[in-house]
């Protein structure tokens, strides 16, 4: 059992991590680098809009991209261990796992780990103003837990009581609300931040769907 769990999580996490690393480097890193030009003051977006922008462009730093790829794989292997463990547990309880249902497992993981937290704390660029880090991390971990339990209670619940409790648990973090800064005033243009948030959520959706399908595929293969 343990060997199958470890192998399927490693394979699924690594494969999904490679997909996410490629998408992150192509779609997200250029926006991070541009934001850093504003964070360090090389570019400024307030003031005279007719003034010519200095012709500064951020270049890819491939050593830095290497670290990003390494951490994409590490983080998705972490996600994969949790995903495969929960799939194995569900299977023990009589839930049938298929590669096709892996899409739904992936979407559920995406909702728990990225979409629900993003409702209170949208993905941020460097140079944005945010509340104190520890408070945000506590809200985020609480939201991940509540969303996971809420979705499980709705999906595997058998009556209105289970479904109702699931909905309430899903809503709790958003009723409490995420910690927000007392004032705004970041250095990053809002247009850039909005583009980053949208892209980050899209890349996350692709990564998690891939992770769900690959986890189911490797789990079924290791257990054949």
């Amino acid at each position: 059992m343990l060997k199958n769990l470890v192998y399927s999580a490693l394979f699924a996490g690594l494969a999904a991590g490679i997909i996410v690393a490629a998408l992150t480097i192509l779609m997200l890193v250029p926006l991070l680098l541009e934001a850093e030009l504003y964070e360090t003051g090389q570019l400024i977006h307030f003031g005279d809009v007719t003034a010519a922008m200095p012709d500064i462009h951020a270049e890819h730093d491939w050593a830095r991209n290497g670290l990003t790829a390494l951490f994409a794989a590490t983080i998705y292997i972490g996600f994969a261990f949790v995903m495969v463990a929960v799939m194995a547990f569900a299977q023990e309880k009589g839930v049938q796992i298929t590669t096709r249902s892996g899409i739904l497992w992936g979407l559920a993981g995406y909702a728990s780990f990225q979409l629900a937290p993003a409702m209170g704390m949208p993905p941020e660029l460097p140079g944005m103003i945010a509340a104190e880090i520890t408070q945000r991390q506590i809200w985020m971990i609480g939201t991940i837990l509540a969303t996971t339990v809420g979705i499980a209670s709705i999906v595997f619940g058998k009556n209105w009581a289970h479904w109702g409790v699931g909905l309430v648990i899903l809503a709790i973090p958003h009723v409490i609300g995420a910690p927000h800064p007392e004032a705004f005033g970041g250095t990053v243009p809002p247009e850039l931040a909005a583009e980053f948030a949208g892209r980050s959520l899209a890349v996350g959706a692709v990564g998690w769907i891939a992770l769900g399908v690959l986890s189911a595929y490797f789990w079924l293969r290791e257990n054949r």
Binding site: L67, T68, Q114, L125, S200
Partner: peptide, 29 residues
């Protein structure tokens, strides 16, 4: 693994994991 790569506040870890933490929307700074 997720806690160390995504949340731990060590400066070295923060710097190396920086871009990926931002990319998945984990609180970074």
């Amino acid at each position: 693994v997720l806690f160390i790569a995504g949340f731990a506040s060590s400066a070295t870890l923060h710097d190396t994991a920086h871009d990926m933490r931002h990319a998945i929307g984990f609180a970074c700074h």
